[in-house]
């Protein structure tokens, strides 16, 4: 996700490595996340991932985890919401 590095380096003037939650959200189709450390909850309507700086909730319908491992996760289905639940922004 090179775009994130560009955004972060421009905003904070130098923080290139961001260990918090990173997500790319395609509304109604999928959500891709990085820096995922675990799955806190998983149902067909909601998947909550644990990251080093909090939890990220992906909500929608008919959700399935298309890919998970090595810190990456891809949730497919009717994804309607990607929300940071707690921790630092």
């Amino acid at each position: 996700m090179r775009l994130f590095e560009e955004i972060l380096s421009g905003a904070d003037g130098g923080e290139v490595a961001f260990s918090g939650a990173k997500a790319v959200f395609l509304g109604g189709r999928c959500a891709a996340l990085e820096n995922v450390r675990g799955i806190f909850a998983y149902t067909a309507g909601e998947v909550v991932f644990e990251t080093s700086r909090g939890r990220v909730r992906v909500a929608g319908e008919d959700l399935r985890i298309a890919r998970y491992g090595e810190g990456d996760a891809l949730v497919e289905g009717k994804v309607r919401l990607v929300e940071l639940l707690e921790g630092e922004a």
Binding site: G38, I39, Y42, A44, I65, G69
Partner: peptide, 28 residues
């Protein structure tokens, strides 16, 4: 069963097409 995915991820096993088929059942 989603915790099982965490166990696999920690051991370096990538999981694909994980889908919950029941309250206590998961296909992957």
């Amino acid at each position: 069963p989603h915790r099982a995915l965490d166990r696999l991820a920690r051991r370096g096993v990538r999981v694909f097409d994980a889908c919950k088929t029941g309250p206590a059942r998961l296909n992957f």
